[in-house]
Every structure is written in structure tokens, then in C-alpha cells.
Design a protein around this nucleic acid. Structure first.
Lengths: 243, 243
DNA sequence: AATATTTGTTGATTTAGATCAAGCAAACTT
DNA sequence: AAGTTTGCTTGATCTAAATCAACAAATATT
């Protein structure tokens, strides 16, 4: 991360690790004054804003290692709500104190910029996804981004539970629930994945990647391959921390 | 901006105002090493990445006062190309030196965070737009964001030339060119706007705003109203500079 | 000025995905 | 255990926007 142990200690001093939060708890709500960033240690969180029709529009999902709240610095208040999906351990970093500390620690400073810039990069990725990609491409990209997030945490990249509902996935990807459901079964029929409710087993990463890239071969069974190095739309702090 | 005149002087010292750039010139290209941020003084710029099929996917348009290059800090190289649409005067700010300067000037520091966070906010807005909005809603939002940008510059909010082609607009909004063209004429038929190629006259801002909000009344002629305070998907530095 | 090229508009047709509708399986209630 | 609610799947139908196709207007090229 580019910080020495002394710097690190100072950083740890300002970080508050809160008691576990449970499903449905809020990290913050739309309109709350911005005070802190939150690092997800375990569990998962969704962020969303209300839509005109009262339903919620999912902005993002946050898995362990990821950081929530970066959108609020400018407005000084949160522009979305962050709600716990699965019991979470989180660390809260008071932004004001982080800012002060960073001004004395150039390397922390630099990390902060990278963190923010990375968030922009992820958003840009997501923009590409929503801009012109098909439903299949979107769901494949989503599954791979979750997969990569788990892999980074040292967990299985191919077998995992999704903490979010079909409805939440559909909102995140800008599709209808029914479409998500249909594509899950279609992927299953093509032996790309195996699903049972929230449990997902990715059987053919290579093909899923090809789908994201827009390469669509009609139900040809291909071999499972390579670890791959693909960028993920989820907002991870990990890579930025180790430098 | 929260900086005193002495701070300001220091900032000005590192800013390089380059000779004018002409249509087709690049500020930077995809893959270039990241060195500087660019502020658009006059003219306009588009950013884009190549798509699988070789065509370009527009990421953003930048009008006077806006800042280009914030996406590249993390990767240390540009993830898109920035190409001049209309002859531009730009200021180049070497990022390394800006970072150094900011570490001595807490208020500049803070501005930097806000700037980056705002970019995230804009991207989030755009995500909402591309996620679930209709073609009409997208084009209306686009026109209003351009309008607001001109207004901020003290120019007419209702009459302006678009520096980008229909094709570029369609790519930006994730639609087909034909759709853009049709909606332009539809808006014209409904007396919402008056268009002639790149010249646009907004006749009914209120209705356009309503359309963005998803309120669709079948060809009812309403009154033109209010200045409005709406957030725009374009990436402006202005508001962040005056605090 | 004549020709070619690009850019924008309009119409006809197709299609991906939305919406509507129904049924089923899990998970809460009581 | 029976009933209720919620989440997921599947089928039928509809529709907004894409695609295909042609043409017109503007711009560039000779």
C-alpha cells in the first residue's frame, strides 16, 4: 500500500470497526450528511436510490474489501442509501480525519486519489455495459464480476451464493426480473452455469467471458479455461491498497 | 474556491495554457501514460473507447469549464481517447505537481476530492439514465444537460449549436442514430424544440424536464417556466471551483 | 461547377426484451 | 400443519427501439 508501519498505525487509529450489522440495517440513507467511508470486511451491501415510481434503483453491490460512500464527498450528503444484504462487519473511516491524515502522508494521499479515480473507472465500465450490451452480456459480466470479487478474497471463483435477489440484479443491470430469470435458465441449459436459487456454479468461465466480449456461438460446448485478468465493475479497494 | 490569492498564484504557476487545438486533435489517446488533467476553456471535446466492432463508444462530452482526464489517475494510463470536436483552448495541469501542491494547500486538497467525487456523481446519474430510461427521456436529459452547461457559462440556455454529430449523441446515449433523428423531429412536432441540423432552440424547458422525470403527456402544449436547479450529467468544474 | 462522401431524415420490418399472467416453491405466520 | 406472503420461473403477447433500406441535404474533393 506504500505506507510504512508507523503511517499504518496512524491510519488504524482513526478507523472505527463497528459491531456487526444485520440484513436490512443501513450504513447510511439517502440525504444523510456525509461523514464517513465504510469498508466492508464481511457480508454484503447494496446501494440504491428511489425511482419515480417508488421502487428502488440499485446503484451497486459491495462485497468484502470494497469501499462504500465515495459518491457523497462532493455533495456533502449521501445521494443513495446503503442497506445490508448479508450480515456485515464494517470499518468506518471518518472522512474529515482521513483527509487531515492524508495531508501529512503523501502516499495515503495518492491512494485516495487512486481510489476515487478507480470508482470512476468502474462506473465507466458499467456505463459501457448499460449503454449497448445485450441482456446476456450484462448478466455474464455481472456473474464474472462477482466471481472475481470472490477470487480476490481467496474464495472459490466458480461456486458461490449470491446475496442479492433476482429483482435486485435486474434493477442493477437495467433489465426486467423475468429476463434475468430466463437468462439464468438459458445459461444453465447451455451448461455455462448451474443455478439453484441463490447458489451459482460457473461451469465455463471462458465462454462467459466471450459472451461479455460479444462473441456469441450458438450452443457450442467449449472447454473451461484460464484464470483470466478481467476488470470488474464492482468497487474493490484491494488492488489499490497493495501497490 | 476557498483558496486565497497567494494559493491561487501557486496554482496558476503550474497550469500550462496550450495553443489552440483543432477539430480532430487529441488531448490524449487510449493507453497514453497519464500525466495531466485538462480544463476546457473554449470549444468542446469528446472522450471515447473503441468497441469490439471497431466503432467508437462515446463516454462523455466536455464543454467549457469542464475537466477531462479524471478517469486515468488509478490506472496511470488513459482508458479512453479525448478528441477535439470544436477548436479548443485548454489548460493543462500536470497531475504530479498538482498533487504536490495540494498536499500543502488543504483547501485545494479538499477541492480535488470534491472534483473526483462529483465525477462519480455524474457517472451515477448517467447510469440511471442508461439503466432504465426511454429514448425520449435520454435525449431530453441530454439536451437539458447541454443547456445547463451553456447557462452556467452565461450563454443562452435555450439556443445553441451542438458540436457533436447525431451519431456521437446516439453512441453517448446508447441508442441508434435513427432513433435520435426521429426523436428530434418528434420533439419538434410537439413544439418542445426547434432544430435545424446542429442548431437547437429549446422552446419548452419545463416539458423537457417533465419528460426526464418520466411524466409523459400526449402532445399537450404547456407553458415555459422557471430557471430550475437541475443536476447535469456533464462534468463541470465550475461549481466545485466557487465554493 | 460537377462529383463524391458524409451526415441526417424518413419509412418498413424485425426483434430483444418488457409487460402481463399464471403457477410453483420457499420462507414466514399462526 | 395449514395458510399467507414473497421470490422465482415459465409462457403468451406486446412494444420500443434496432435494423434495413432508401433518399436528401450538406460538405468535401476534383
Amino acid at each position: 500500500m506504500g505506507l510504512n508501519s508507523d503511517d499504518m498505525e496512524q491510519l488504524e487509529d482513526i478507523v472505527k470497526c463497528s459491531r456487526p450489522l444485520h440484513r436490512g440495517d443501513y450504513l447510511f440513507r439517502n440525504g444523510d450528511k456525509f461523514r464517513s467511508l465504510f469498508i466492508i470486511k464481511t457480508g454484503s451491501v447494496k446501494t440504491y436510490t428511489p425511482r419515480e415510481d417508488g421502487t428502488e434503483r440499485i446503484i451497486g453491490f459491495y462485497l468484502p474489501g470494497e469501499i462504500v460512500g465515495l459518491d457523497a464527498i462532493q455533495q456533502a450528503e449521501h445521494i443513495c442509501s446503503a442497506k445490508v444484504l448479508e450480515t456485515c462487519a464494517t470499518c468506518e473511516i471518518p472522512f474529515r480525519r482521513l483527509e487531515d491524515l492524508a495531508s501529512h502522508l503523501p502516499s495515503l494521499q495518492h491512494q485516495m486519489y487512486r481510489l476515487l479515480s478507480r470508482e470512476i473507472g468502474y462506473d465507466t465500465e458499467m456505463l459501457m455495459l448499460l449503454g449497448k450490451k445485450s441482456a446476456e452480456e450484462r448478466l455474464a459480466a455481472f456473474l464474472l464480476s462477482v466471481s472475481n470479487s470472490f477470487k480476490r478474497r481467496g474464495l472459490s471463483a466458480t461456486e458461490f451464493y449470491l446475496s442479492m435477489s433476482r429483482h435486485e440484479i435486474s434493477s442493477y443491470l437495467g433489465l426486467a426480473v423475468e429476463t434475468i430469470s430466463r437468462i439464468f435458465t438459458r445459461f444453465q441449459e447451455e451448461n455455462l452455469i448451474q443455478v439453484e436459487r441463490k447458489y451459482v456454479h460457473l461451469l465455463n468461465l471462458k465462454r462467459l467471458e466471450d459472451i461479455v466480449l460479444g462473441i456469441h456461438i450458438r450452443s457450442v460446448h467449449q472447454n473451461i479455461e484460464e484464470p483470466l485478468h478481467n476488470e470488474e465493475p464492482l468497487h474493490n479497494i484491494e488492488n489499490s491498497l497493495r501497490d
